[in-house]
């Protein structure tokens, strides 16, 4: 197998503003130092990923599932519910029988 090279690539695949956008999508808060680290590391990793472009995959079907399984169903039957104390047992905050969360907007 090829040994990995982690040398700096000239081409920036991902920029700071993209890292910020991705962090927002992923609901992560990054300070400036972390942003720099991610820009650097993700660029290294993504540069390595470019290797895949060597392959022509135009006529290749993607594999999302390895098993040739289809049509797995369950019958429409109602089972037992969890007692509400159990439902809320791990809740960081609750009120009456609800999960409590900070204001939305």
């Amino acid at each position: 197998m090829d040994t990995m090279t982690t040398k700096e690539t000239k081409k920036q695949v991902i920029t700071t503003s993209q890292v910020e956008h991705v962090a927002l999508l992923a609901r992560l808060e990054l300070n400036e130092a972390e942003k720099d680290i991610y820009v650097n590391q993700l660029n290294n990793i993504l540069a390595y990923m470019q290797m895949l472009n060597e392959l022509n995959t135009e006529n290749v079907t993607p594999t999302a599932h390895v098993l040739p399984l289809y049509n797995v169903f369950r019958q429409d039957e109602v089972g037992r519910h969890m007692p509400v104390e159990k439902v809320l047992a791990n809740a960081p905050e609750k009120e009456e029988q609800f999960f409590k969360v900070p204001r939305i907007v």
Binding site: G79, R80, H81, M82, V84, V87, L88, E96, Q97, F98, F99
Partner: peptide, 8 residues
Amino acid sequence: EPNTHVCP
């Protein structure tokens, strides 16, 4: 009642 029709 709230959160009574749920499972894991």
